[in-house]
Design a protein around this nucleic acid. Structure first.
Lengths: 142, 142
DNA sequence: AAAGATTGAAGGCTCAATCTTA
DNA sequence: TAAGATTGAGCCTTCAATCTTT
């Protein structure tokens, strides 16, 4: 009858939406996982690729919309993966910058291509009218 | 989570959806957080309340759609909160059941009420036509 | 051997506290 | 004192390995 997250009496649209979002995320994470990435890692790599220069960890936190301490840890993992490396900023010794490695640049491209594929599948799966409705929903919620 | 991998020029519908879902989740978590709950904890409490009996941790994992080891930890925290307690099953000594405490029963009600409020706000905020579109989307995705 | 639960390790997230440099 | 980054602790989630009981 209802989804397991739905309360007994109300087949909730909201919970259904959350469920759908999680399913999509799982789909994306699955595809990115095949090349050793995650949405989080790809986001950071993409922010760096777009900037085409080494960004400070603070800028990265802003770009990815998370807290600074989170970026510290993501960059730790990215650095362990050899996709990014930390560079000191000599004009202000408090700041640390993250720079893409060659492998990081390649991986970003691969990841972005995979993400794009999922996006296209998604948009192909829903009709134009529903896309318009979804656009309204997204702008109303965000 | 990450909204900024949407290019400035191309606001992807899919990424927008994910962003909206995260915003809603944050809204729910914020409300539940005021009474010391989370969506995860409320889900487990609600599964228990609906069953009106002590469920095995395996049944709980199925009800909440997660892996068994996850439930072990969530129940650890709920037990530490005094909302649930583990009971041994004497007919099969491998199984452990989780039972609601009095406080757990109350907290579930409070949490469910708060969740319902957010759901109602959400449904009030979107028009009937868009609700229908969303319903189609959810069934297509799930 | 198979099933139920737990543990350990890891990714991902937050907040509060800390350290260094401005 | 402010700002930038890090560390520590906690919550949520998964997978792989382990332990006990069937």
């Amino acid at each position: 009858m209802n989804d397991k997250h739905a309360t007994a009496s109300t087949p909730s649209l909201l919970l259904g939406l959350l469920h759908a979002a999680h399913a999509i995320e799982a789909r994306i994470e699955g595809s990115l996982g095949e090349i050793g990435l995650s949405m989080t890692k790809l986001s950071v790599l993409t922010a760096l690729a777009k900037a085409s220069e080494a960004l400070t960890l603070g800028d990265l936190a802003t770009a990815v919309a998370c807290v600074r301490s989170n970026i510290t840890q993501v960059v730790d993992r990215l650095e362990a993966d050899g996709l990014v490396h930390r560079v000191a900023d000599h004009s202000d010794r408090r700041v640390v910058r993250a720079a893409l490695t060659g492998a990081g640049t390649e991986r970003q491209r691969d990841g972005a291509a995979r993400l794009l594929t999922v996006q296209q599948e998604f948009e192909a799966a829903i009709g134009p009218a529903d896309q318009a409705a979804l656009t309204r929903l997204v702008s109303a919620t965000g």
